[in-house]
Nucleic acid binder design. Structure first.
Lengths: 297, 297
DNA sequence: ATTACCCTATCAGTTAAATCGATGGAGATG
DNA sequence: CATCTCCATCGATTTAACTGATAGGGTAAT
């Protein structure tokens, strides 16, 4: 394979400019260099590309077909150079973010939307896991970042605390618990608890610290469906305050009168302390940060 | 743009072989040449492609991403070389065949089917025109070949006569004409004549010599629909004998008892006498020829 | 530990490719 | 006819690619 990209570029310019001489001028080369390159192509391909019998060299049908294929190759070459340029400027080729499914996904999704509008060269992957599964996936995939409530600290990991997410224990206004005063744990256990499902396949090593431990538990896949279930009066459960402000204001959801019906946790953005974040990482960091700040207000 | 295909090939082989040294052996080059090429790539891209800190050089994420893009470029390069190889062996990039719609299309279609099974590198285009439109299109498109009943001869055109196509004037067994003996022209003009539509947009210069000139004429788009109309008893018309042999045998269609109810024309394959046919042209020629031979038997 | 390999980087020298500048022939232009 | 512009070709020159040898590590088996 002796095919030369430069030769294809010369061919392309010659065709666009209409003559060898003009192409030479445009490429800042001598006209003989153009002749040489075209001739080389013709010899390599063993196909006449130009018909020189008339005054101006004219493309042969074969030449035209090869030119069209060549343009695609040039496009691909430009693509590669652009990519390399991005990488050299600090963009990661790919960026994987693992999220704890117990966290509200909305701010992350909003951050991703904001990022998508900036046309980042980095391919971003997001994986949602839960509890132990988060760090497992982070380690296994050598992911770039994880967004967690809890993790095993290590000197190799760098954690950036996000603003607190206030949580509130609520139920539907039509649920029995809504009427009760000074609810105690035993009473809670009589009703259906709504919680987020653990996506990890392994037997969970740590228990969800926010779970009450009753025998009627509904495991859901996100706060969206949890909210729907709460509104249906299915049971009670923790919700991020920000997600149900309107429902609390209009009275559709009410706070359970439990000893500690308020709670807050601090999500953390964790990444490897060794290799620094690239441009995409920094961007994601700041976007997620600002979305969570909006959430805590 | 000084991206070099050879460098990408070297990168690809290095990755596949797992080391610079093995790649050097496979490419029949000195190991230093491999080092040189990889280094050149890294300098051009300003991106580290291999991590040399450990014993064997390991791909960086950027290197992997660029490699994957590079492979696509290599594929495209191979594609171009294959094409050129085909062209140099006499395959035309494209082949355009213009057919007179008054001819039976079936043998041409069968020829194309046979060709398709041979995986020809040539892109074949077929355009169906009629009467004057055929040669007009042939000239205008600078088509490679045309299949005609009639054409304006020229020293620049080379015509190959195909076997005669016997035509027969038929109608349905239930049509009035089927019962009549010694039909004359005036009687014919009372009934609906079925004929093939002229696809040329221009006012037809020459008249269809096989048309009777009555005022009840149905213009159809091919012998298939013409046959259907005949079987329905809509009228009478010329058909290639070979296409209606079974219907004649079982009596569904009958020959009109007209003075000259038999006729034969000689289709011709016409191509430029100046530039010789390429491999695709020769193939098409022989395929069409053999299909028409089958038709005339 | 010692030895024998195998990895990659680097350097000086060689070879081959790309390019330049000049020249010439042939069609277009006016 | 003179003058352009087009392209091919040739010798000279610059530049890029490659070789072969050497050196600095790491690996793996004894």
């Amino acid at each position: 394979m002796r095919l030369d990209i430069e030769a294809l570029r010369v061919l392309d310019v010659v065709i666009q400019e209409g003559s060898f001489a003009k192409a030479a001028a445009k490429l800042h080369k001598a006209q003989s260099a153009i002749s040489y390159q075209i001739k080389k192509l013709e010899q390599q391909f063993d196909v006449p590309i130009f018909d020189r019998s008339s005054y101006r060299a004219e493309l042969t049908p074969q030449g035209r077909a090869l030119w069209q294929e060549g343009r695609q190759l040039l496009q691909q070459a430009i693509r590669i150079e652009n990519l390399a340029d991005h990488y050299s400027k600090g963009w990661e080729p790919t960026f994987e973010l693992v999220i704890d499914g117990a966290l509200p996904l909305e701010p992350v999704m909003r951050a991703m939307k904001a990022l998508a509008e900036k046309e980042i060269p980095t391919k971003i992957q997001i994986k949602v896991e839960a509890l132990g599964g988060v760090q497992m996936r982070f380690d296994q995939d050598e992911a770039n970042m994880m967004l967690v409530v809890d993790y095993t600290p290590s000197p190799k990991l760098n954690a950036i605390p996000l603003p607190e997410v206030p949580m509130i224990l609520v139920t539907s206004k039509d649920h029995c618990l809504a009427q009760q005063k000074e609810v105690d744990l035993n009473q809670l256990l009589n009703y259906v608890e709504l919680t987020i499902h653990d996506t990890s396949e392994l037997p969970t090593s740590k228990l969800d610290s926010l779970q009450f431990g009753g025998d009627k538990v509904f495991y859901l896949h996100g706060f969206d469906s949890k909210k729907t279930c709460l509104l249906m009066g299915l049971g009670y459960g923790w919700m991020p305050l920000s997600l149900i402000e309107t429902e609390l204001a209009c009275g559709e959801l009410v706070e359970v009168d439990y000893t500690s019906s308020r709670h807050a946790f601090t999500p953390k953005l964790v990444h490897s302390a060794e290799l620094p974040l690239g441009k995409a990482g920094e961007l994601i960091l700041s976007e997620v940060l600002s979305e969570f700040e909006a959430l805590s207000r």
